[in-house]
Design a protein around this nucleic acid. Structure first.
Lengths: 116, 116
DNA sequence: GCTCCATATCATTCCTTGCTGATATGTAGT
DNA sequence: ACTACATATCAGCAAGGAATGATATGGAGC
């Protein structure tokens, strides 16, 4: 009985953690930033240049990603260089692409979320 | 040059697809449903019972997941049985848990998104 | 110390989306 | 055909979060 309750709590905790992580990924701007960082560390204005997003916008999303532990940062003089905190993030994105190849029609057709 | 433009378009398309997929996962209710379906196909009222969500709510999310191609459904008399459309969805959730073990502190501490 | 550049923060606005309660569709059994 | 149960849909509300523009912080060089 305590075991069942514990399992439910664990399940709820797992779902909550997964939700937060997916939220971190569930935004076109953040995915653009993460995609850029997949190819190597970048300072903020480089990210701004590559993504076409505004500087405050990038900064906001970077703080979000930093809080969530998805990226890490190092100060370099006036610059702040960001990088993926874990190479598994890049692999996860690859896995997602693989999955997308399988369910692509559906996802492309899905009109529930504004895509961009 | 055309190549650069094409690459940008490809990148944008990739990001858009990834965003939609992650949106499908980025909700505690849908993750609860997917988590339940990871253990095998279920009819709607079973999902309602296991997740504690309201029936219209489950139905809404199932339609969303169905549209996106993440689940598939078969009618069985009065019942409709849902299942994961691809086993890779379960593996992706496992991979996410692995990644979470690495960045867990950050994600748990992240206050940017309502966890549940 | 002043100025320039890089980055971060803040307040506001607007849009998206999830949930609820009521209702519609649909299937089975009698 | 009528009833009961399973599922789907819809309108409306409420909250969350993303983008913007203005502004603040902070390091570097003269």
């Amino acid at each position: 009985m305590e075991q069942i309750v514990a399992d439910r709590n664990n399940a709820a905790a797992t779902i909550e953690r997964r939700t937060k992580l997916f939220r971190g990924f569930a935004d076109a701007s953040r995915l653009a930033i993460l995609g850029a960082l997949c190819e190597g560390p970048l300072v903020v204005h480089e990210i701004v240049g590559r993504t076409g997003l505004s500087q405050p916008n990038v900064s906001n999303h970077l703080r979000c990603l930093l809080d969530c532990g998805l990226v890490a940062s190092d100060r370099d003089g006036r610059f702040v260089r960001y990088r993926l905190s874990d190479p598994r993030i890049a692999s996860l994105l690859d896995d997602v692409d693989t999955l997308l190849d399988a369910v692509a029609e559906g996802v492309d057709a899905c009109s529930n979320y504004r895509g961009a």
